[in-house]
Each structure stands twice: as C-alpha cells, then as structure tokens.
C-alpha cells in the first residue's frame, strides 16, 4: 500500500513537471523575459549613488566626517550620478524595449490610487524618486521641502 502511494506520487509529479511542455500554449512559444535591462541597471546604479550621498550627508551631520572630506566626496558622487544619468539618457534613445517599459510604468503610476508624497514626486517632470530628496533625481528640479 505505501509503495502504491509512493508510485502514484511520482507519477502525479511527472505529469506536473511535464505540464508546461504539453499544455496548449495560447500565445505561442514565449521567450524568457529580460530581468535587468541596461536602462533599469543605470537607473538602479544611480539610486545607489543617491543612497551613498544620503549616507554621506548623515555621517557628516553626525560629525563623523570632516567638512573637507565631505565636500570632495559629495562632489565626486554628484559627478558619478551625472555620468550615470547621461548614460541612461543615451540608452533610452537607443532602446525601444525600455521605452515600452517606461511608458507602461508611467501609465501604471497614473492609475495608482494613492498619490505619492510630494517628497518623492517631481513637480517638473513627474518622476517618482525612490527616496525623499530635495532635488529630483531625474531632472534636478527642486522638490517640495520636507514636512
């Protein structure tokens, strides 16, 4: 009896495993989607730089970093962010797939019920910053100050 159950389990699982191969595919054979597009990668790396900047600011305020260090590092990070922004602009103009995703994202944001807080949303270009920032990460416009 237990043996029969074990065999039945194995057979069921075989069907379960084979199912995606056998099932009629309505949309034809699909390709695996791309996880990280170059554009998304640039954007994410830029966010990391912003995060680093934020950390730097915090550590400066905490008195961990001398003013001189803070100045040079902060300038460095800003230059790095600018470089990444330029790179993503370039990628945007050359890549159609990413443009599609971006439009999709914009449409989705528009449909979203809860409006993002003004700390995040840029009044100029409509970009939703991932962190509460003073200046928009996309276009550099000034955002509503923190409450």
């Amino acid at each position: 009896m237990p043996l029969a159950i074990a065999l039945a389990t194995a057979a069921t699982l075989a069907v379960f495993v084979a199912f995606p191969l056998l099932a009629p595919d309505t949309e034809g054979d699909q390709l695996l989607p791309v996880d990280v597009t170059p554009l998304a990668d640039f954007k994410r790396r830029r966010m990391v730089v912003y995060e680093n900047l934020q950390d730097l600011e915090f550590e400066f305020k905490a008195g961990k970093i001398a003013r001189e260090d803070y100045q040079t590092l902060s300038d460095n990070y800003k230059a790095e962010a600018a470089g990444l922004m330029a790179a993503s602009l370039e990628a945007e103009t050359t890549s159609h797939g990413d443009a599609w995703i971006e439009s999709e994202v914009a449409a989705r944001r528009a449909r979203r019920k809860s409006a993002p807080s003004p700390q995040y949303l840029c009044p100029e270009c409509g970009f939703e910053n991932p962190l509460p920032v003073k200046f928009c990460g996309e276009c550099g416009a000034k955002l509503a100050s923190r409450p």
């Binding site: 074990a6 379960f16 199912f19 995606p20 191969l21 054979d29 699909q30 695996l32």
Partner: peptide, 27 residues
C-alpha cells in the same frame, strides 16, 4: 535547454522539477 533556447515553457518545467525532486526526497 530552457536557458539556451530562452524558452519559458521548458524553464517552467525545470522549475517544477525542483519541487518534484524535493517531494520525492521528502517521501
């Protein structure tokens, strides 16, 4: 194969094999 062909179907089947492997070892 799923990775080489970038085939979603084959990949899904492979993913399911992981679960099947787990269940049979559990038995």
């Amino acid at each position: 194969i799923g990775g080489r062909l970038r085939s979603l179907r084959v990949t899904r089947s492979a993913e399911r094999a992981t679960l099947a492997f787990f269940l049979m070892i559990t038995v």
